[in-house]
């Protein structure tokens, strides 16, 4: 990074530290914070989508769909997320490759499972083994996202299902009286109104999601915990920057990061709740209505 860093063994004090903190592994450590934030940014809407589908399925009038929705939410809720993470990524990877194999290599006659091995045709490999490393990493990353989204989608489904039930029945009855079909009422009345009921639960879910990110390294993503463990461990003089076991400092840093992150989230979500409550037929909406000065509704 800096010019004087070319010979770390000759440095001491602040200069050594400045070089140490800007070496290659540290830059990757810092960028892994971005990885975690990116993952959260993609996972949250995806989990919400899974949750929406799960909740909609759970209240479906088609029995098999309803069972599927309920099984999904109940099962994921009953099992610790870490257990899913430990085998789901490989399972998901094999499932995708198996489907591609069926589609792309109809003439393949060797068995896919040979003992512990899982061999699909080279065309079905995801990504192809000749693909650049970046694709492999992107693929791993998306597997991690899908795994996270499936697990947290089940929780979201639980919250949204409750929120849909919480929308006053009179609203739906009025919609029916206006001649809306069940579908129309669902789309125009139920969905727009459920969010305010769902927000407390979803806010909570967001907090849980943040706090589940230290498990990302289990999914093969080189996240902040991976790097904190890797860099913090004691380094012999085989490394340019030897040091004793400093993991406690790195993990303390992560602790501070998470505390700040959850605090910011709390503040933002509280504001969002206030905004969504405006104009809603809830106690909070009523409070806001009374507190607001007379005049055109903003």
């Amino acid at each position: 990074m800096f010019e004087y860093c070319s010979d770390p063994s000759a440095l001491d004090g602040a200069r050594w530290l400045s070089c140490y903190l800007t070496n290659g592994v540290h830059l990757r450590f810092y960028s892994s914070f971005g990885t975690v934030l990116l993952l959260l940014a993609i996972t949250a809407p995806l989990a919400l989508a899974f949750g929406f589908l799960g909740a909609a399925a759970s209240r479906s009038s088609v029995a098999p769909l309803r069972w599927a929705g309920k099984t999904y939410t109940a099962m994921v809720r009953g099992v610790p997320d870490i257990v899913f993470f430990l085998f789901f990524v490989i399972a998901l990877d094999q499932a995708f490759e198996w489907m591609r194999h069926q589609a792309l290599c109809p003439g393949w006659d060797a068995p896919i499972r040979q003992g512990a091995e899982f061999n699909v045709c080279p065309e079905a490999k995801l990504p192809r083994s000749s693909a650049p490393q970046a694709w492999h990493e992107a693929y791993n990353f998306s597997l991690a996202i899908v795994t996270f989204a499936i697990v947290f989608g089940a929780f979201a489904a639980n919250v949204l299902y409750g929120a849909m039930r919480a929308v006053p029945r009179a609203q739906m009855e009025t919609a029916a009286a206006y001649g809306m079909t069940e579908r129309q009422a669902f789309r125009r009345i139920l969905v727009p109104q459920m969010w305010v009921y769902a927000l407390p639960g979803l806010s909570n879910l967001w907090m849980i999601l943040i706090k589940a990110t230290p498990l990302l390294f289990l999914l093969g993503v080189e996240d902040i915990v991976y790097w904190a463990r890797e860099i913090g461990g004691s380094k012999t003089s085989a490394f340019s920057y030897p040091h004793p076991d400093w993991r406690i400092w790195y993990f303390s840093g992560l602790l501070v990061f998470y505390l700040i992150f959850t605090k910011i989230s709390e503040i933002v979500l509280a504001q969002l709740t206030a905004r969504l409550s405006a104009g809603q037929a809830t106690a909070e909406g009523e409070r806001l209505r009374r507190a607001a000065p007379a005049g055109p509704a903003a």
């Binding site: 706090k211 589940a212 990110t213 230290p214 993991r247 993990f251 602790l255 998470y258 505390l259 605090k263």
Partner: peptide, 18 residues
């Protein structure tokens, strides 16, 4: 409450053990 709700249990375990 903030300390224990605001940070991942994974990290709490690690730091507590250390």
């Amino acid at each position: 409450v903030f300390l224990f709700r605001g940070s991942p249990l994974f990290i709490q375990f690690f730091l507590a053990y250390e």
